[in-house]
Computed example of a mutant assay.
Amino acid sequence: MSSLPPVLFLSHGAPPLADDPVWPGELASWSARIARPEAILIISAHWEQAPITVSASAARVPLVYDFWGFPQHYYSVTYAAPPAPALADAVSAALGGQVRREETRGLDHGAYVPLVEMYPDADVPVLQLSLPMLDPQALFQVGRALAPLRENGTLIVGSGFTTHNLRWFHPDNPAGAPPPAASAEFDQWAAEAVAAGDVDALLDFAHRAPAAAIAHPRTEHWAPLYVTLGAASGSGDLSAQSAVDGFWFGLSKRSWQFA
Results as ranks from 00 to 15, higher is better:
Ser76His: 14
Glu26Thr: 10
Pro85Lys: 02
Ser55Tyr: 01
Trp47Met: 01
Val64Thr: 05
Asp66Met: 07
Tyr74Gln: 06
Ser31Ile: 05
Ser76Gly: 13
His73Leu: 04
Pro85Ile: 04
Ser76Asp: 15
Pro37Lys: 05
Val54Asp: 05
Ala32Gln: 14
Thr78Ser: 08
Ala88Arg: 05
Ala88Asp: 06
Val64His: 00
Ala86His: 12
Ile40Met: 04
Tyr74Asn: 05
Val61His: 00
Ser76Ile: 08
Glu48Pro: 02
His46Phe: 08
Thr53Tyr: 09
Leu87Thr: 08
Val54Phe: 08
Gly69Trp: 03
Asp66His: 08
Trp68Gly: 10
Ala35Leu: 13
Tyr75Glu: 02
Ile43Arg: 00
His73Ile: 03
Pro62Ala: 00
Ala35Asp: 15
Leu87Asp: 09
Pro37Ala: 07
Glu38Val: 14
Ala28Lys: 06
Arg36Asp: 11
Ala81Ile: 02
Pro71Asp: 14
Ala56Ile: 05
Trp47Ser: 03
Gly69Asn: 04
Pro83Asn: 01
Ile52Arg: 08
Ala28Val: 07
Trp68Tyr: 14
Val54Gly: 05
Tyr74Ala: 03
Ala28Pro: 01
Ala88Trp: 04
Pro83Ser: 03
Tyr75Ile: 02
Pro51Tyr: 02
Phe67His: 04
Leu27Ser: 04
Gly69Glu: 04
Ser55Ile: 04
Pro82Glu: 09
Ala59Gly: 10
Gln72Tyr: 12
Ala86Lys: 13
Asp66Thr: 00
Pro82Ala: 06
Ala32Pro: 08
Ser55Trp: 02
Val61Pro: 00
Tyr74Met: 08
Ile34Ser: 10
Tyr79Glu: 04
Pro51Gly: 01
Pro51Arg: 04
Ile34Phe: 11
Ile42Ser: 10
Gln72Asp: 15
Pro37Gln: 09
Ile34Asn: 12
Pro82His: 07
Pro82Asp: 02
Tyr74Lys: 09
Leu27Asp: 07
Gln72Met: 13
Arg36Gln: 13
Glu26Arg: 15
Ala58Leu: 15
Leu41Val: 03
Tyr75Phe: 12
Ser29Asp: 15
Leu27Cys: 10
Thr53Cys: 14
Gly25Arg: 14
Leu63Tyr: 00
Ser44Val: 10
Ile52Thr: 13
Ala88Phe: 02
Thr78Arg: 11
Ile43Val: 15
Ser57Ile: 09
Pro37Trp: 06
Ala39Gly: 13
Glu38Ser: 15
Ala59Lys: 15
Pro83Asp: 04
Phe67Lys: 06
Pro82Tyr: 03
Ala59Cys: 12
Asp66Lys: 01
Pro83Trp: 03
Gly25Trp: 12
Ala59Tyr: 03
Pro51Gln: 04
Ala28Gln: 09
Pro62Leu: 00
Pro71Lys: 11
Ala86Phe: 09
Trp68His: 13
Ala56Pro: 03
Ala84Tyr: 02
Pro71Gln: 11
Pro71Gly: 07
Glu48Ile: 14
Ala32Tyr: 10
Trp68Gln: 14
Arg36Trp: 11
Ala32Cys: 12
Ala81Asn: 06
Ala56Arg: 03
Ala45Ser: 06
Phe70Leu: 14
Glu38Lys: 15
Phe67Arg: 08
Ile42Pro: 06
Ala80Thr: 07
Ile52Cys: 09
Trp68Thr: 14
Pro71Arg: 13
Thr53Arg: 10
Ala39Trp: 10
Arg60Val: 00
Thr78Lys: 08
Ile42Gly: 09
Arg36His: 12
Ala59Phe: 08
Gly25Asp: 14
Ser44Lys: 05
Ala50Glu: 13
Asp66Ile: 02
His46Lys: 05
Pro85Trp: 07
Gly69Cys: 12
Gln49Glu: 15
Ile43Lys: 03
